[in-house]
Computed example of a mutant assay.
Amino acid sequence: MTEPIRVALVDDQALFRTGIRMLVSSQPDLEYVGEAGDGREGVALVESARPDVVLMDIRMPVMDGIESTERILAAADAARRPAPKVVVLTTFDLDEAATRAIRAGASGFLLKDSDPEFLLAAIRTVHAGTAVIAPSATRELFEHFDSRAGNGGEPPEFAALTSRERDIFLLAGRGLSNSEIARSEFVSEATVKTHISRILAKLGLRDRVQLVVYAFENRLV
């Protein structure tokens, strides 16, 4: 039997934590492993509970969700262990804090008033290795990054990609899934996954959401 996905929550609103705890605990494939009321407590919680996915509020006392995300991922890197996937939660469709969180390494963001089924699907999706972004904010997010992009031209590290890796990078940068890329390139999903892993390593990116941001910031798509 597959091990359940371990989920932790970091949020300063007790009532919201209660609701998420009940929602996650109701799912047979998810395990609620703990919660924290601020970012500093969140760092300690992740260190002790080792969740697979962390739902992280952006605005909290003591330490906000952006700094907490950075510390959680840095600690995992330093210990050379797999980092948890972090999904930041916000009450706003898109703002500078959400984009900063993605740059900090979050695997996406959701609105706090998202449909419960969408939240559950997002947990499963990021655990599987795909980024999630609040649907209403996708266009605004990309426009935001595009408006901050440089003057164009390939960054030096991009030259390290092979021709096939470039092709797959461009498709992934447009948001295509592994199965969609596999059909487009006439290869297996396993081959696509291998190429994506190599691309991320060569470009120094953590996951696919950072790949998309990288593509837009450098005007590669």
Results as ranks from 00 to 15, higher is better:
residue 197 S to G: 14
residue 116 P to Q: 10
residue 44 A to Y: 11
residue 17 R to P: 01
residue 52 D to M: 11
residue 18 T to L: 12
residue 138 T to E: 14
residue 10 V to G: 02
residue 47 E to A: 15
residue 174 R to I: 00
residue 138 T to R: 14
residue 110 L to V: 05
residue 171 L to Y: 10
residue 129 G to S: 07
residue 104 A to W: 03
residue 19 G to R: 06
residue 32 Y to S: 07
residue 178 N to W: 00
residue 167 D to K: 12
residue 70 E to H: 11
residue 187 V to T: 12
residue 85 K to A: 15
residue 128 A to V: 08
residue 6 R to Y: 01
residue 179 S to P: 01
residue 188 S to I: 04
residue 140 E to I: 01
residue 2 T to R: 13
residue 210 Q to W: 05
residue 36 A to V: 04
residue 23 L to H: 07
residue 102 I to V: 15
residue 77 D to K: 10
residue 59 R to C: 03
residue 3 E to V: 05
residue 115 D to S: 11
residue 11 D to C: 03
residue 165 E to P: 01
residue 5 I to T: 11
residue 27 Q to C: 13
residue 161 L to Q: 03
residue 166 R to W: 02
residue 106 A to L: 00
residue 137 A to N: 02
residue 123 I to D: 05
residue 108 G to L: 04
residue 104 A to R: 08
residue 91 T to E: 12
residue 93 D to T: 10
residue 141 L to P: 07
residue 42 G to E: 08
residue 33 V to Q: 05
residue 200 L to C: 09
residue 22 M to V: 06
residue 199 I to G: 07
residue 90 T to H: 04
residue 5 I to A: 04
residue 87 V to E: 04
residue 117 E to G: 13
residue 156 P to S: 09
residue 34 G to T: 09
residue 58 I to Q: 12
residue 131 A to D: 10
residue 99 T to D: 06
residue 122 A to D: 01
residue 148 R to A: 15
residue 11 D to G: 03
residue 80 R to P: 00
residue 52 D to K: 12
residue 139 R to N: 13
residue 175 G to E: 03
residue 33 V to N: 02
residue 41 E to N: 12
residue 159 A to Y: 06
residue 195 H to S: 13
residue 196 I to S: 01
residue 211 L to N: 10
